[in-house]
């Protein structure tokens, strides 16, 4: 007990005596923790967004404009029998027209009362990768290599894959660049911390030398330094978490109603995130000071 309080006193004394290196180490921990705190949810967000888009991949079957109610019923039955089809939704000419007009009223005003849109079936495949299999099943290959739809009243079959692929690509790029940026920042912070600790140790190498000469064991010398790192790491981590909490309250919670993307149900909860961050900041600080000390203790 005597010893613990002695080490604690030594650590606090050393922080007080070296305020600038201590502040630098604290800032380094704070920045690392902030980066991790933003980086972990951001990557999850990007992952979730990509998964979302993949779920939205559909196959659209457009009827010819002259298709009758009977044709629609026949094609629908045919579609429902096709393999890999999970769900078929029929969107009539009129419904499609109303939808589009709502999205782009000016263009449709110009068209007047003419409805150029065909009846459409929106098919959800059982798996995002089976879209092309459905399309293949709805077409027959002619002798000249040309494909024709299985039903004469089907105009064309398209997978909304092009747009989907783009979204997946973009989220992938975002994820990659976020990952690179986050990785770089974490590496920079770790270097900064170890450098700061090394500097503060270097300025005290004489002190360490004297301690060794009067017969201090390595652990007796090490503990105050490690404790110092732990204290700085904890303060830095807590400050970062407070900042993150404020950011969550002021920015994210306000946006939640507007952009559903920002809050996902499978995203990490704030509580566990904090636990991870606290452990990370304390661990980095303790490991940093412990490792830097190893070299200096070989006097």
């Amino acid at each position: 007990m005597n010893r613990v309080s002695f080490f604690l006193k030594e650590a606090l004394r050393s922080i007080g005596r070296n305020p600038i290196p201590s502040f630098a180490a604290l800032m380094a921990v704070l920045i690392t923790t902030l980066v991790l705190g933003i980086f972990i949810p951001a990557v999850q967000l990007a992952n979730g967004a990509a998964a979302d888009v993949r779920d939205r991949i559909q196959v659209n079957v457009f009827m010819k404009t002259n298709a009758t109610q009977a044709d629609v019923a026949r094609v629908r039955a045919r579609l429902e029998r096709t393999e890999h089809v999970k769900d078929v939704v029929y969107v009539s000419k009129a419904q499609a027209y109303a939808e589009q007009k709502k999205q782009n009223p000016e263009a449709y005003d110009l068209l007047g009362n003419v409805n150029p849109l065909p009846d459409t079936f929106r098919i959800t495949p059982d798996d995002a990768n089976n879209g092309s299999a459905i399309i293949a099943a709805l077409q027959t290959k002619g002798v000249n290599g040309k494909t024709t739809p299985v039903d004469p009243k089907i105009g064309s079959t398209k997978e909304s894959k092009n747009q989907a692929a783009k979204v997946v690509q973009i989220t992938g790029a975002v994820k990659l660049s976020l990952g690179l940026l986050g990785g770089l920042l974490v590496v920079a912070s770790i270097l900064l911390i170890s450098n700061t600790i090394r500097l503060s140790l270097f300025s005290r190498r004489r002190e360490v030398e004297v301690m060794k000469l009067v017969g201090a064991t390595d652990s007796f010398i090490r503990w105050p330094f490690v404790l110092e790192g732990l204290i700085l790491g904890t303060i830095g981590g807590v400050m970062a978490i407070v900042l993150l909490g404020l950011a969550k309250l002021t920015i994210l919670n306000q946006l939640e109603g507007v952009a559903t993307l920002i809050s996902r149900p499978d995203m990490i909860q704030f509580g566990p995130l904090i636990a991870v961050l606290v452990l990370a900041s304390i661990g980095v600080a303790a490991a940093g000071s412990g490792l830097s000390l190893r070299r200096f203790l070989r006097v």
Binding site: K212, L213, V214, G215, A216, T217, D218, F220
Partner: peptide, 13 residues
């Protein structure tokens, strides 16, 4: 190496 500190406590320098 580990015992050196204990040895040094017997020396004044």
């Amino acid at each position: 190496r580990k015992k050196v500190p204990y040895y040094r406590r017997n020396l004044g320098v």
